[in-house]
Computed example of a mutant assay.
Amino acid sequence: MQDALRNPCNQALLDGLVDLHLPDAWLVGGCLFQTVWNLLDGRAPGAGIRDYDVFYFDTEDLSDRSEQAVNRQAQTLFSGLGVQLDVRNQARVHTWYAAYFGRPCPPLQNSCEGVDRFLVGSTSVGLRREAGHIEVYAPYGLDDMYRGILSPNPRVDHGLLYENKVRDYQARWHWLSRPDPAALAAARQNL
């Protein structure tokens, strides 16, 4: 995932996350895989990235007010980057998930479980700086992300939302593809 660090915003966020003092903090999602896709497409690393997501896990305060305060603190800390940040406490996902997705979600146990629930499995990726090195979390591996295969998350079935994500990604990176149906069926059997 060194490619994701070729985006100077990703590098700055990883370097500065420690200053927010957030438990189990990870840079996740689009800012990482979209940087890789941009590089594979010959674009600038940060081209078209809409926001930069940070997950953390804090069971002390599950309120929306607390999460918004963390967001404001992060926006202030990283204001020089000129990017939209979206900082989300994964300990509170179960408090809003059913209203948003129409089905319940059990309480998560850590930030990585939030990454586990991304709609497109091949985009489930997170990075954090831990003890001086970069730790990568990619529960479904990185191969499909680098090959541009938009595999659905085998653990989270949100068909229409997955389809919308795929259409959006393929509109921006035309070379992205869906997985072979036979391979997809085999992957689901291996769960």
Rank of each mutant, 00 (worst) to 15 (best):
D15L: 15
G16D: 04
L17G: 00
D19A: 13
D19R: 15
L20W: 06
H21G: 02
L22E: 00
P23A: 06
P23M: 07
W26Y: 14
G30T: 05
G30A: 10
G30M: 05
G30H: 05
C31N: 05
F33K: 07
Q34I: 00
W37L: 01
L39E: 01
L40N: 02
D41M: 04
D41L: 03
G42W: 02
G48N: 01
I49E: 00
D51K: 05
D53S: 08
F57Y: 07
T59Y: 14
L62P: 04
D64G: 06
R65Q: 10
E67S: 12
A69R: 10
R72C: 07
Q73T: 08
A74F: 09
Q75V: 03
Q75A: 02
Q75M: 03
F78H: 05
L81I: 04
G82V: 01
Q84R: 15
L85R: 00
V87L: 02
A91C: 12
R92V: 12
H94E: 04
G102Q: 07
P107K: 14
P107L: 15
L108H: 13
N110T: 06
S111I: 02
S111H: 07
C112P: 00
C112W: 01
G114M: 11
R117W: 10
R117Y: 10
V120I: 13
T123L: 12
V125I: 15
G126I: 15
L127Q: 04
E130L: 15
G132W: 08
H133S: 08
I134C: 06
V136H: 09
Y137V: 05
P139G: 12
P139I: 15
L142S: 09
D144T: 11
D144F: 15
M145V: 10
M145L: 15
